[in-house]
């Protein structure tokens, strides 16, 4: 089975510098009645993105002309907190995003993102502030992510290292299917069960 891959990416970014964005904002619960993953991108940040009459809120970052085609979200501290819903990365990916840059990610969100080819990139607060400033100066700012080298860079910024656990990195680089990997341990699981019966 094929799994999502990520190697390198150079793309424009959108900046949403709000702290503690919870997964209820990313995708409100009323859209969780779906039984597949389709269409969630249209509902991404729904209550911030659309006005009460359903029209796009022109002030919201995703609706600005320069945001169209962006592939990287620059988010605030503790992005993705709250509910475990995997619908959150499904919605982000559905909109077209491939990486999120923040100073901290909530644990469950981070795990869910990695499984969907959405790369969570954690950088230090000073670097994050510099990225936001550079993007403010230049709305077309190209940001380059190299997962092999574990770096993120933009014009004026030398490649910055970011942490990722080696297993997740390998899975994304090589498109390793995690369920397939787990299934290889069935004999060990059976032995465990026999020992604990």
């Amino acid at each position: 089975m094929s799994a999502p891959k990520f190697t390198t990416l150079t793309a424009r970014c959108v900046v949403l510098p709000v702290m503690d964005v919870d997964t209820d904002q990313i995708i409100p619960a009323r859209f969780l009645k779906v039984t597949d993953k389709k269409g969630l991108g249209e509902k991404l940040f729904c209550d911030w993105r659309y006005r009460d009459d359903g029209s796009p809120n022109p002030d919201f970052v995703l609706n600005r002309p320069e945001s169209q085609g962006a592939r990287i979200l620059v988010a605030g501290h503790n992005f993705g907190c709250g509910s475990s819903r995997e619908h959150a990365p499904w919605a982000l990916v559905g909109w077209g995003l491939q990486a999120v840059i923040s100073t901290l990610f909530a644990d469950i969100f981070k795990g869910n993102s990695l499984k969907n080819g959405l790369l969570p990139i954690e950088i230090a607060p000073a670097a994050h502030a510099a990225l936001v400033a550079a993007r403010t100066q230049n709305p077309q700012l190209p940001v380059t992510v190299d997962l092999h080298a574990q770096t993120v860079a933009w014009p004026g910024q030398a490649p910055l290292q970011f942490p990722i656990d080696p297993f997740s990195r390998t899975c994304l680089l090589e498109g390793v299917d995690e369920l397939g990997y787990l299934q290889k341990f069935t004999p060990q699981a059976e032995a465990y069960e026999a020992a604990h019966a």
Partner: peptide, 10 residues
């Protein structure tokens, strides 16, 4: 602990 839907499948 809580898990995502991919992990539910796992």
């Amino acid at each position: 602990f809580g898990i995502g839907t991919s992990e539910v499948g796992h």
